[in-house]
Amino acid sequence: MPHSHDHDDGPDDGHDDDTGHSHGHGHDHDHDHTPIQADEPTGHYHNLADAARELLIEKGYFDGSDVREMIERIDSRTPAIGASIVAKAWTDPSFKERLLTNGKKTLKDEMDIDVVVADLVVVENTEDVHNVVVCTLCSCYPVFVLGRPPDWYKSREYRSRVVRHPRQVLHEFGTEIGDDREVRVHDSTADMRYMVLPKRPAGTDGWSEEQLAGVIGRDSMIGVAEVELPN
């Protein structure tokens, strides 16, 4: 799901080097104090995050294991999930129709993939149409299908320009869309996420879903690239 909003990455002062330790009442002071080093980033927002997390745990909204499990859950979502969806759609026309009609329900019912956040609209690239996805207002992205978004997707440059000069932005990604194809840009929202169903490349007749999934990359499902076969 993604979520969220907003945008780009400014200076990133995160640099943590966590080492294990406990926290809470009754601190365990047996840990090694020798090398004095900052275990956690100490900037204002890092401390704000730690303070908020501690307070929310103390108030009973969740516990530390919930935090860990959620991180692991999101870590498990990668572009490979999207690739498996695309490969299935390429090889099963009736699945593709259902996917394009009702993405979220079809993925849940037929692939046991929970989109989790928001609705999911899958848009198909064809000989006539090339689709590309953005979130101009923030950074909404189908996180539970494609994993966390790349930084450029959240950047001011991408959000500002792809809606006005999509062919030029695609060119900057090395993607040339011929004048005979319409380019459609889809602007995501907190409640509506898009994923591109790229065109199946020539030369893949008879390939298995697994073989096909192996050549489908993240950028082709955002729409800034097309699926190309390795040379």
Partner: peptide
């Protein structure tokens, strides 16, 4: 939190610190 970090004390809950 800032004081604990300055003292080299743990801040992140056990089991969460290295996840991800």
């Amino acid at each position: 939190v800032a004081a604990r970090k300055a003292a080299g004390e743990p801040v992140v809950e056990k089991g969460v610190e290295n996840s991800g």
